[in-house]
Design a protein around this nucleic acid. Structure first.
Lengths: 221, 221
DNA sequence: CATCCCCAAGATGTGTACATCATGGGGCGT
DNA sequence: ACGCCCCATGATGTACACATCTTGGGGATG
């Protein structure tokens, strides 16, 4: 396997573990232990950790360790506010044409949502949410916008997952299914502007529900 | 000096050289030569080059070298289109309050623009443009938006500089001075929304002038 | 018994030798 | 003379030893 392919695998794997809370915020990611797990030396592991650090998912402290970062309420609000705007923009700025395979995939995601509703599970929810996000990414015609959107999504995904586990999971899943159904409908009529607006609305509503469960917003825990 | 501070110095230095065309697109950045120049080993140099590669400014090819990347017309257009939107958003999304020191700094930049007009120079123009960009960055209250804006600015700054050197430099400087004057005026009245609109308009106009000089848009060279 | 100091342990940061890879030029065959 | 093959060369990628730094705990001291 090529060096870049290994790097991507390692990166995706670690990013996934962080965002699925296998490594919750505060976890120490030992370079040596990761190196032995993946059968490589510390060097390529450090290359991946450096990238994760540049993206704000981990923080390397000399003499201490590389720790998964937390996200405070202010930063979370800023990222969500920007994601709202970008979601809307993704519907208006040179969207990709809606092909039949896109519609099929949208229906497939809605079907997955139905299965999820029958067996609610936070981790499965997170995975489907990522698959749906990846789907929306592929509708974006502007690569720079897609890159920025992805960066922001993964920056707060773990906090979202951590918080909805404390909320009513069933209600969150229902809201998510409603978003996917609405997006699928808008796609069927080829209205990408509406898709952007729908996504923006749901990001906004999701954040409003999130805020209620954030530390500091409730007097008692 | 701490390790992170050295990293930042090296990163800023190399990014500056790339964006000021000391290292034009296609230049090979030898890890060994950079290491000896800065008096360190290849390891911290590689750490910086990896970051620059993640940001798209260089591309490391195994067995060949680490080359400064070029930006094709499509990508340039996408980045500029997104920068337009973000400039407008920076005026509407929780801008920072306009203090007296901000107004002083704006006047200082306008004065620098006057000096530049008296002695036109592409490199001095690029430096002042960066200082002005940094100034606008500090008006943004949303850190995520600021981070994304910076990423996109530096992604195409070298192409902008390369192209305006072929255009009428005096006219470009005049347009730039006009933007700074308009922004200074809007700041004096505390209208951040207007600042965002002005910046968006000038990014748009700058790109339209840029397109005319891009390879492929003219039959003969 | 509380407190302070010191250092051992373990983590990331750095230096260096070696592995791997792409490329261009020289030499052999036709 | 032309073309193909091979490999010397020099670049990035990897492994490992060592340097540097933070932290927490043990022991001397008041």
């Amino acid at each position: 396997m090529s060096a870049e392919a290994r790097h991507q695998r390692l990166y995706s794997e670690l990013r996934g573990r962080i965002c699925l809370l296998d490594y919750p915020p505060g976890t120490k990611l030992g370079e040596e232990s990761l190196a032995s797990e993946f059968g490589v030396s510390r060097t390529p592991v450090r290359r991946v950790l450096a990238r994760l650090a540049d993206e704000g998912l981990v923080e390397a402290r000399h003499g201490v360790g590389t720790l998964v970062t937390d996200v405070d309420a202010r930063e979370l609000g800023e990222v969500y506010a920007l994601r709202e705007e970008l979601a809307q923009l993704s519907g208006t700025m040179t969207p990709r044409p809606v092909t039949q395979s896109v519609l099929d995939e949208a229906r497939g995601l809605v079907a997955e949502g139905e299965r999820l509703a029958e067996a609610p599970d936070a981790r499965a929810f997170a995975r489907l949410n990522m698959a749906y996000f990846d789907f929306t990414q592929r509708l974006i015609g502007n690569e720079a916008l897609a890159e920025v959107s992805e960066r922001l999504y993964f920056r707060t995904a773990r906090i979202w997952l951590k918080t909805i586990s404390a909320l009513d999971l069933g209600r969150e899943i229902e809201a998510f299914r409603e978003e996917m159904r609405q997006v699928a409908g808008a796609l069927a009529s080829g209205d990408m502007t509406a898709v952007g607006m729908i996504r923006r609305a749901h990001i906004s509503m999701s954040f409003h529900r999130l805020k209620a469960a954030l530390p500091g917003s409730r007097p008692a825990n």
